[in-house]
Nucleic acid binder design. Structure first.
Lengths: 137, 137
DNA sequence: AGCTTGCCTTAGACCCTGTCCAATGTAGGG
DNA sequence: CCCTACATTGGACAGGGTCTAAGGCAAGCT
């Protein structure tokens, strides 16, 4: 976490109160907040922070590879701070909750050359869908 | 295709000109149109069709499992009519073009029970990202 | 074929997510 | 402590999608 702030400073990031708060809000496992949720949590600590700044900061964090953008449902994008431990997502079809998962095997290896249509394939992202324990009850 | 229309009629679908046109527009392989694209192609044949009807019809087709919704990039959702032949998607990170692919193996089998967090896991969706031949050139 | 009924369609207002801009503020090097 | 380039702000704007009230029409019934 403060490793994150250090890395960013090394990269020439001007460290402002707003950016610090956004980074803090995104800390943790199984965190997948929308930009709007990030904004309201950040505003709880720094009331004058603007939506534009939250969007700017999130975009920069994504570009620097510190945060991964997840489009689960075509509505708001979600931001996953756990970018340095590769993982996939399991999401509840009913309530939309998300968990990070670590499947075995490498999905990239499962795409035969005959199926790659001449693409240079770079990555594979797996989304599992199901019903979470709370919704099943 | 007219199998589709038959199935829908059996399910109590009132068969209108608008719905027929939407279904026709969505026919084919590697078809991944946005709602807006569906609307303009449908309007080419039936000029007075409204956006609302296209959205309604697409939603119904998705609910009935005849069409799959694909959220690739957080922008417009795309609609894939090839719902009865299970497949995954390969998309170009640069231009956004999409191909249907059929990887080997079953990603569902790669999620150990210890990683399922009590969910009833129903399906796995794999998205491959890369650069298409046109964009690589 | 004509009637009836309830489902469909329509246009347009509206909402949500996200981007852009010009004006103002401030981190951090000198 | 000052300067300046980089950040932040709020508000306007754009794209994608949903909702609603009013009128239209498919299909079952006679």
């Amino acid at each position: 976490m403060s490793d994150l702030l250090d890395r960013l400073r090394e990269g020439g990031w001007r460290l402002t109160a707003q950016r610090r708060v956004v980074a803090e809000v995104l800390d943790g496992d199984h965190v997948h907040l929308t930009a709007d949720e990030v904004h309201s949590r950040a505003a709880a600590r720094l009331p004058e922070i603007s939506r534009a700044t939250v969007y700017n900061t999130l975009r920069e964090l994504v570009q620097r590879g510190e945060v991964v953008e997840v489009s689960t449902d075509g509505r708001a994008k979600r931001y996953d701070p756990n970018a340095h431990r590769p993982h996939h997502h399991l999401l509840c079809a009913r309530c939309g909750s998300i968990r990070d998962v670590h499947p075995t095997g490498d999905p990239l290896a499962n795409l035969p050359a005959s199926e790659s249509f001449g693409f240079t394939v770079l990555e594979a992202e797996v989304t599992y869908r199901g019903i979470c324990p709370d919704c099943a009850a």
